[in-house]
Structure formats: C-alpha cells, structure tokens
Amino acid sequence: MVFEKPVVIIDNGSNMLKAGFACDNHPVSMFRTVVGRPNYLKGSYGRKPYEVYIGDDAIDRIEDYELSNPVVNGRIAHWDNMERVWHHVLYRELKVAPEDRGVILSSNVNTTMQEKIHCCEVFFETLNTPALCIQPQPVMSLYASGFTTGMCVDLGHDTVDISPVYEGGVIKYAHMMTNYAGIQVINYINDSLRDRGHDFGIHTLEILGNIQKQIYITSDCAMSRRNYKREHILPDGQAVDISQEVFMAGEMFYQPTLVMGEDKGILSLHDAVITAAMKCDADLRTELFDAIVPCGGMSMIPGLPGRLGIEIEESIHRPVNILTSGEAYALAWLGGAVFAGLPDSGKIWIFKKQFEDHGAKIVRNKFM
C-alpha cells in the first residue's frame, strides 16, 4: 500500500502500548497503557477542569491519581480513555498529524465487530485519519516470524491466547486460553511474599514488576540449591529471598496443579497449544506445529520457549518448531510493519471516504 508518508502502527496491549512507523525496525514509543485522573474526582468526570496523565506520567503520580486501564483482557473497556491514549500517541509520542497518516491498529482475537466499527468511528470522525486497517495480533505476530500459517502463543499481561492461523486468517473456533497470565504471576508472587510477612505498601507494583523480571523456567526441575537461590534488593537496601517465588511462578505455566496444590481451572501452556491444534483439521496440524510463535511480554521469560517445545514433543511424540525472537514483546508491532509493505495489503484498508459512504457495512466486509 502506497502512502505519501510512512504508516503509523499501533499495537494496543493490556499492559504496554507499542507505536511507531512502518519504515522503522522497532517501535518509536512504548509505554504503560494506563490513564490517571485525580483521586478527588471519585468518578465524577467532567464537572470541573483537571489534568489527565497517560503512561509513565500517570504512574509517577500514583499517590495522588486514580489509575485505570482502558484495555482489559485484550479488549477496549473504556473508550474515552482509549481515545485519549491514541491522541497522546499521535500528537505527543510520534509527533504527527493524524490527518496525514494511515494507521494499522492491532486487535485481540476476541474483538467483536462492533468494537472494530467503534475504532473506525474514533479514527475517522474524531482523529480524521485518512485510512485505517485493523489486523488481529496473532496474524501480525506470524507475519513478523515469516509465516502465514502457524500457532501464535500470546503471553500477555492479563490473558494467554493460543490462536491457530491459516494463510493469514485466525481459526477462531480453535482459540484457547490458559486462565493464567502476567497479572496472575504478579498476584501469586505478592501473596507468597505477604504470607512471609513482606508488605511493600504503595511501591508494591514497582517492586513486584522488578521481581517478575527475575522469573525463569528450567528444562529440568532437578537443580542444585545454589542455582535455585535468588535475592531481590529493595530500595532501602534490604535483601529479600525470592527463590521460591520466581521459580514457582514460572513453573505454573507447565504444572499449575502442582504449584497451586489444587485444580483452579488453569490449563498448562503445552496442553492449551496441543488442544488448539487438535481442534483444527488433521491436515493442518503438521503446519501448525512447524511454526509455533511465542510472543508478548511473558514470552521473554528465560527458558519458556525451550520448555514449551520439550513438553509438546513429549506429549505428541513428534518434533515441533518453536520460533523464538529477541523482540518477542513487540512481535505484533513488527508484524504490522511487515504487513504494511505487502503489495496486496491495500485491499484490506478502509479509507475515510469509504467509511463515510458505506459506514459499518464496509467494516464488516473488510475486517471479518
């Protein structure tokens, strides 16, 4: 698709938003998908002037501001906040006029048609974008890995979605979820540390986020105590033993019942991948297992892709291909850049004039 100026790509995540230009090989802007309003409002928005902060600016004011996430479980839950985030991305982060740029917008595999129509209304009627393309995150992640058929394993902040993709289209009836994602990891670590008498007060989220970065997964649970030992240094210099937390939080992906001590409805990651593949036609399974793409922030946990391959192979008794990337956290965004350069991508764009003439009908035709 040919535009006079580089296309803008926006990947909406529940925890992090990635944005940039199709001509680049990495997002220009990455920040927390969070909006902050003063605590004294107590939900009474619009009655008097106040400052709204977005991303890291909002988190820096956590003591005085109420924070809310416009994206929940991969879907937009608060449209006014999401509109503010998009406005912030275009004008302040990327410093572009939306009237001059086509936009590629990522969507969750469960995004409804009504939500896609609402996105078009915001971009065409409020932001005056000349052209918009909405693409599912699993498809974009496969594009970034050089495939159009395969299995996307998206390990996000509040959902883990396993989506089989065939020739650039999501097989929605085979979509699976594990009911265990980044937020559950943080909650598990927090509960475990509290049981041991550690309470970090208002800085809890920041400290838990740093501890989360130390999670790892082993290919073999038999390991020496010395290799198992982990500590985290608090801002006041105190050292906290987090050996159990960072090991068990990672192991939850593969042995949830063992870690929790009971069945809480959490599906192990490899079982979810296998189940999703088995829901598809038998002729497709070989291609799906030959291109398993972990992506999202949690896929960066050391050892996770290797263990996933081991567990799947032991279950189905055949080799599989796990495609790893050093930028798995931004794989959907990178796939958007690949998609923007495809010669046939122009067939899927919606232009402002088309939306004005045909409305929701053309959205249904283009973004099924």
Rank of each mutant, 00 (worst) to 15 (best):
Asn12Thr: 11
Leu17Asp: 03
Leu17Met: 13
Gly20Glu: 01
Ala22Leu: 06
Cys23Leu: 15
Met30Trp: 01
Val34Pro: 00
Gly36Ala: 03
Asn39Gln: 15
Tyr40Asp: 04
Gly46Gln: 08
Pro70Val: 01
Val71Gln: 00
Val72Ile: 14
Ile76Glu: 00
Ile76Trp: 01
Asp80Phe: 09
Met82Asp: 00
Glu83Leu: 15
Trp86Met: 14
His87Ser: 14
Leu90Lys: 05
Arg92Gln: 11
Val96Asp: 03
Val103Asn: 06
Val103Thr: 00
Ser107Met: 13
Asn108Gln: 03
Met113Ala: 11
Ile117Ala: 03
Phe123Cys: 06
Leu127Ser: 04
Thr129Asp: 04
Leu132Ala: 07
Gln135Pro: 05
Ser141Met: 00
Gly146Phe: 05
Asp158Gln: 02
Val160His: 03
Val160Cys: 14
Val165Cys: 03
Tyr188Trp: 13
Asp195Met: 15
Ile211Pro: 04
Ile233Arg: 14
Gln244Trp: 11
Gln255His: 15
Ile274Met: 05
Leu284Val: 04
Phe289Glu: 04
Gly296Pro: 05
Met298Lys: 07
Gly303Val: 02
Pro305Gly: 09
Glu313Gln: 11
Arg318Phe: 09
Asn321Ser: 15
Ala337Pro: 02
Ala337Asp: 04
Phe339Thr: 07
Lys347Leu: 10
Lys352Arg: 15
Lys353His: 10
Phe367Val: 10
